[in-house]
Write a protein that binds this DNA or RNA. Structure first.
Lengths: 169, 169
DNA sequence: CTTGGAAAGTCAACATAGCTGACTTAAAAT
DNA sequence: ATTTTAAGTCAGCTATGTTGACTTTCCAAG
């Protein structure tokens, strides 16, 4: 079923596929994600917002004018769950929702000045940690990091990720 | 800090530190983590367990006989939160808690046969995804992946991660 | 044109899993 | 003997996920 500690199968360059190596990768992913979210979480905890608000701000900033439905697909939560978050962000004046011109069922989302300010603060902290990690590991490690992460995504999600990279909404 | 044997450290090869590149890394991390947890989540959702139970099973399996306090430090949650999870796992016969021999205040945690079976199922699914990603990206990418993740952890967490790698509890 | 279905969004109610604070019990350390 | 530590419990709060039921709007088939 799974090879637990046997000799490396089929040559020495498959060593990185032993269960032991895979487990290390799994734990690295777990602990690194904690660090990844730590700084924004700290900032948000003081103002009664959470990670969900951060994610919404991030992607609205990334794709101004996006519809609720589009945001839903990217975040991978139910519309009811997202709606609760958006309602607060709109009530607090961080996000602006405009009825669609062509299709009045749609709501197009934008950040207000205030929303942009908070998004900047959050992403600045998160970028600082990422920059430190990138700098410590070097360009080639970064390339490998991105390759493995991309390969780890679900296919559909990877397509969304790649579309985002190209600046399409 | 500096990469060994890469191109000379001029101005241009710091391109991977632009805000744009960092943002791509941030989004890759976000989407990849979704994939990372997707398979265990699917398995667990059918049996009224959640991610918290998975994490507890993983680390008890990893460090049999660990104390509650040690597990607390590794998981980074409050004892009340962990206790809710452990109580269920013990009641359901997945985890065994034994009073310490030397220090009777401590409880040492072990997986039962049933607990080991579930842990195997969960980690098998998660390893399969990791294996696929590793295989697609190749050994050098994997090395870079791990370097960046380690650099992304909080210092204290990184020490715990490295201790785990060496098999200490 | 009307009507019926589909799509987008909203409201209500519930579950999970974090959190803090206050407390008990037992054992170890001082 | 007193204090500290490890573990556990109870109560209550928050954030964020879920389903189900609903309204408004759009579009297309009859």
């Amino acid at each position: 079923m799974t090879d637990t500690g046997g000799p490396p199968a089929g040559g020495e360059n498959l060593l990185f596929l032993t269960d032991e190596q895979l487990r290390k990768g799994i734990e690295a992913m777990f602990f690194a994600y904690r660090g990844f979210t730590a700084d924004p979480d700290r900032i948000l905890s003081g103002m009664d917002y959470g990670r969900a608000h951060h994610r919404a701000l991030h992607f609205i900033n990334r794709m101004p004018g996006t519809t609720v439905n589009n945001l839903l697909n990217i975040l991978g939560v139910t519309k009811q769950s997202l709606n609760r978050v958006l309602r607060r962000l709109i009530a607090d004046g961080l996000v602006v929702s405009r009825v669609g011109r062509r299709d009045k069922r749609e709501r197009h989302l934008y950040l207000s000045e205030k929303g942009e300010a908070l998004e900047r603060e959050l992403s600045k902290a998160q970028r600082a940690r990422m920059r430190k990690a990138y700098r410590a590991a070097g360009p080639e490690a970064v390339a490998g990091f991105r390759q493995v992460l991309e390969a780890m995504m679900d296919d559909e999600i990877r397509h969304q990720y790649l579309s985002l990279r190209e600046g399409r909404s």
